[in-house]
Simulated scan of single mutants.
Amino acid sequence: MLELDPATIDTSGRVGLFFPEKAEAYSVLIARDGQRTPITVRRNGSRAKVPWTLVAGLHRHAGCALAGLSVRALVVDGDEDELKSVQAGENLERRDLSPLERSMFVAAVADAAKARLRKLHDGKSQQQIAAEIGASERSVKMTERSNEGAEIRSVTVTERMGKVQFTPVEKADAEAEGADEALRSTYRWSDATAAACGMGVESLKRSLRIFRIIVEPNRDLMDGFKNHPVASNASALLAICAKGNVPANVRAVLEWLIANPAATTADEALVALELMPSRGGTGAPATGDTKFLNGLQSNLQRLSLNGQRRAAEVIAQSITPSALVAVRDAISARIAAIDSEQSKGEKA
């Protein structure tokens, strides 16, 4: 155990978000009761500006600095990926993680597992590794089913990653499937172990959607967004992720929420930006066709991406033939609008 000057520790590369109020709370507690849990650090090379780099314990480090005290530290060894995994693993044990923070730590663990898998297989890509060792069908192979539940075909993550057109949600989900296999291959995790750590494949999908679509492309907005009510609501964040086909739309939603701190739902931003229709306010209850349309819209928005794809066939078969042309025209207009928005986003 070492006693270090906080100023001798580099904190710039630390994964996660910084909450000043949490550091201030630690400062008061440490000044009164002492530092009960040490931080972890690694030793830097001789040419580094400061001798130590923080691995885990950002808020404890900041609390000691604010209190004018030395910080108790344990020294750990390992490469960059291993140390990020240590940091992420320590934080994932906490119960007070926000969905944003959790997504960052889950991404770090997943990245570290994939890096370790590459090292074990001489730097080959995950697709190459899967092809060579026949990756676990149980965790990698997924089955597409018809509306009646009959199997249509099986598709592997490797096949999915080979797609030319890939939505951000699909990309995050495919990455989650690959990360799940990497964790099982490198750490020999069982289903029960993964679930106990909150790192089962469905949890990976949720966290990697939030990280890849919201956090990673918009890091400059995270300090302004992290304390917003919507930032603590995983369902609201996933609703924003559903607009990830146009990254500019996701950014616009975040900027709107930052500018409107009193908003409590993602829907408020989506309606204000005309990314979804209003569900009505204080007027009279909807009746007739309006009532059923509102219900249809609400149920469709609750479906997963695969669920919406299956719903497309149900809708196509259920619509009266004389109304099919109207459905086709509405879908064509929507696709044209999305293509236009994507073009604008790319130019921006």
Rank of each mutant, 00 (worst) to 15 (best):
S85C: 12
H61E: 12
R116K: 05
D79M: 11
M142K: 15
S103N: 12
Q87L: 08
D111C: 03
Q87K: 09
G89T: 02
R36I: 09
K84V: 14
N44G: 10
E93I: 07
E132D: 12
R118M: 02
G123H: 05
D111F: 07
R72V: 00
I133M: 02
S70K: 15
L100Q: 10
L74S: 07
P38S: 09
E101D: 08
A48S: 01
N147D: 12
V55T: 05
H59R: 08
K141I: 03
R94Y: 03
S70Q: 14
I129F: 02
A62G: 12
I133K: 03
Q127M: 04
T37F: 04
R145W: 00
R95L: 12
A73E: 00
R116F: 05
S103W: 00
W52I: 13
D122E: 15
A67P: 08
L74I: 04
E80G: 12
K124H: 10
Q87C: 10
L74M: 04
V75K: 07
S139K: 10
R42G: 15
G68D: 03
R102S: 01
G89P: 08
Q126W: 06
D111H: 06
V109Y: 06
A62R: 11
V86Y: 06
E137Q: 15
T143P: 09
H121W: 04
M142T: 14
P51R: 03
L54M: 06
L58C: 03
R32A: 01
L66T: 09
E90W: 13
A65T: 13
H59S: 06
D77Q: 05
H59Q: 10
R43E: 14
I39P: 01
A131F: 13
R72I: 08
N44F: 06
M142E: 15
D77R: 11
R118L: 09
V71A: 13
Q87A: 15
V106T: 14
D81I: 02
L117N: 08
R94D: 01
E93V: 14
L100M: 11
V76M: 06
N147V: 01
R102A: 06
R60I: 03
A48G: 14
S125N: 08
P51H: 13
